[in-house]
Design a protein around this nucleic acid. Structure first.
Lengths: 126, 126, 126, 126
DNA sequence: GTGGTCTAGACCACC
DNA sequence: GTGGTCTAGACCACA
């Protein structure tokens, strides 16, 4: 998303059966982790976002608040919400995403009595 | 679980913030996939399970019915619910579990612009 | 089934999710309608049938009683249960089976706003 | 049912001897297949439906969830339940209804040793 | 407001 | 005894 532009519905892949704010949170988080949203970028306002995504403003608020809690966003009163300039926070987020994914795979492997390698092989079978 | 025995609370690890029936479903599913519950084994009845796990009968039913839809359980009218003897269904389930785990990892890697190997390395850092 | 022989499990296609007695009734009924079980044939006794099919005797009883109600079987006390010699009853049964099948198709067609011919064509598409 | 209106008891033909949720499922399914309920239409809420049909909310939920599993309905959290906009799913459903009806007739014909045409003729006799 | 989960308990058909 | 359906009503998260 170029600076100054607004989100569009195509920026997100939404599954109606899961909480919207959760999906927005995850997807913005990975945009930041990947670098698509650069440090210091100003995000569209809650109201703008809500209307462009045709979503309830409280849903957007919840999203931004959650990402603030994770120290990935910072809000300056009266100016808006920005991607943090603390690269450490972003790094931490990247690692956490990676660890979660890897741990889930390890867990699944363990619960089936397999090593991660065996699980990987099983997934590729046939 | 040896045949003829009932579940106990220790058989399941429960997270109060997620639907119970979903957790039961997942955990029984992995027991079957792992072979802990052998084909043909009779599961404790809905009522027995409900009382031993201190849970409502309908919650147990929802669990059993969901597993039946996945073809992992078979119900014989008036007799009870059994682990399927169709080993193919069990195999399919094992592979599906493996694939889901692997795909999620691949997805996460891709969304961060990494290869699965790079993601794995990142998770192990520090 | 040759006279004097007993049923085996292969004589019936059973779906565990539907009442057994209902399935036995239907299938014996069509055997009679088709002529596989000829008028006057003696059916295996309730006890024999129950044990050879590994089924509860009451299930078999219910089956035979239902078929007696439909006048397809007659029981002579102390001698056993036989396929009726009243060909009229068998004919009626054949026609009823045919009518039920045809009416169901007509119903479905009507509920979709189609003629039976259109429904048939739709089923064959692609 | 025009949009914004609620169901009434006249919208459904109910047979007290069969599960209600099953009958609701079938009948809503054919309304969708027939086009009476257009893609995107919002269904009356679970509670509204429950009270207008004098039925328990969970019975309605079961109905809606079953239709969701068949991909004929979509639920948006906090907003309601809608007829899917995926016309392909609706087409598939129409064909499945047609095929089931036709196959049953073919099965019956076969089990009586007749062709479908002969069966049809038999049903019309007398 | 919406749907989703869960409880407590009745009643039924089937085996 | 078994599972299956239904009711009445509470509580929750989401929008």
């Amino acid at each position: 998303m170029p600076p100054g532009k607004n989100w569009t519905m195509e920026d997100f892949r939404l599954d109606p059966s899961r909480p919207l704010y959760e999906q927005f949170t995850e997807q913005i988080r990975t945009m930041i982790a990947k670098g698509e949203l650069e440090p210091g970028t100003r995000l569209p306002s809650v109201r703008e976002t809500a209307s462009s995504l045709r979503v309830n403003p409280t849903t957007v608020m919840k999203t931004y608040q959650e990402l603030e809690r994770q120290a990935l966003l910072v809000t300056y009163r009266g100016q808006g919400t920005f991607v943090t300039r603390e690269e450490a926070a972003i790094d931490r987020s990247r690692k956490e995403l990676a660890r979660t994914a890897v741990n889930q795979l390890k867990e699944t492997a363990k619960s089936l009595g397999l090593t991660p390698e065996q699980l990987w092989a099983l997934a590729l079978e046939e």
